[in-house]
Simulated scan of single mutants.
Amino acid sequence: MPRVARQKAPEGIYHIMCKSISEVDLFKDDEDKLKYLSLVKKYQKTYQFRVYGYCLMDNHLHLIIDANGSDISRIMHSINFSYAQYFNRRHKRHGHLFQDRFKSKMVKDERYLLALSAYVHNNPTDIKGYEKEPEKYEFSSLSIYLGLRHDPYELVDDGFIMGLFGNNAQSARENYVELVFKCDDKNFREEMEFLNEGTEYRSYRRILVRDMRPEEIAEYVSMKMDVKEIKLYTKNARDVVEAKALFVLLMRSLCNFKCSDICRVLGNITNARVSKLSSTGLKLIDEDERFRGFIREFIKVYGYTECKS
């Protein structure tokens, strides 16, 4: 039977659920869960999407992702492919880890978004010891929502959903906790668990438009790095590796380009080389003070957003 086409929209907010194959847990220990969250953060920097919540259980996970103009399939493929490689290497196994494709459901309205967030954060109540205190579970974003701990990865945008409860932080948190504990209702859970596909949800938020041209990116990178633009297209130009890495990363992030698209732009380069340059670019903006805010600065100069309501 052919697969049903995945419902997608660049401005969509998605409930993502991933499960492992039946004979193996998706996460064997806390180290695995920490690794998965670090990969979500890594690719958040690449694709500039937003995370509104998460919960990692032993054999499955939930994410609430605002694609922010990017492609949700590309986002999740990058995260899950990297995690599966790590998992198999660490645990000395081979073969598939995830059960089929990830499941995704587009959020259809504000009410559903609130209910979904509460449902995701209610998941730890199924774990012994957390039945009455899901906020104490380390691998859920609930404690971040409630202001009980700092977000170690600066991964979650909790303000968007909590802002729907009003401007008073204390009362918003009290009302949110009450909603979380309502999620034990059987009908509520069934509605959340992918029984029906929703329609796209649009709220008053800004969406990053991903139609920047490679020529604009090349101009920006050559100016910022003080290199000749033609060198960005030159094979084996070792003196401009950093500039080329940033060029590749920006194309991947802001043009919605796949590796094959970038190969065509650069010419005479392999997918593997593009992937390596992208990783180098990501490391530069993550670890080198010279390039902090590099993507954000480019968006300010060349990019623009659309307001969805």
Rank of each mutant, 00 (worst) to 15 (best):
S73P: 02
L37R: 03
E197H: 06
Y47C: 03
A115M: 07
V24L: 14
K45D: 12
N256D: 09
A169Q: 11
E131S: 01
C307I: 11
E289K: 15
F49N: 12
E215N: 15
F87Q: 13
V180K: 04
S260W: 01
E191C: 01
A118F: 03
P134T: 08
N196Y: 10
V274G: 06
E297N: 07
Q44E: 14
S140C: 12
L232M: 11
E110V: 02
A169F: 05
V241N: 08
P214F: 01
S309F: 08
N268G: 13
H77N: 14
N168I: 04
F165W: 02
V265G: 02
L155D: 10
V107R: 00
K92G: 12
R205S: 11
I72Q: 04
K182Y: 09
D261R: 04
F298I: 09
G166E: 06
F247K: 02
V240L: 06
N88V: 03
Y52G: 12
A115K: 08
N256I: 08
D71H: 14
F81K: 15
Q170S: 07
I230D: 10
A172K: 08
F139I: 12
L246P: 08
S104W: 07
R111P: 06
K235C: 14
N256Y: 05
K42N: 07
K108F: 09
E229G: 05
E306H: 05
R111I: 10
Y220M: 04
N68F: 02
G95M: 07
G198Q: 13
R213H: 10
E200H: 00
G166V: 00
L249R: 15
E154T: 12
L61C: 01
E200R: 06
R101A: 07
I207M: 12
E133G: 04
N88H: 01
Y14K: 05
H91N: 05
G281E: 11
I269Q: 04
S73I: 06
K228C: 11
K186M: 13
P2F: 08
V240K: 03
R238P: 01
A169R: 11
K276C: 11
C55H: 06
Y201A: 03
E178S: 15
T46I: 10
D25P: 10
D100W: 02
I285E: 03
Y36E: 05
I299N: 01
R202M: 02
I161H: 10
D261I: 04
D25E: 09
K224N: 09
P134Q: 14
I79V: 15
N236C: 10
I127G: 01
L97S: 11
C255H: 00
G95N: 03
T46V: 11
I262Q: 13
S20H: 08
R290M: 03
R189T: 10
S104Q: 14
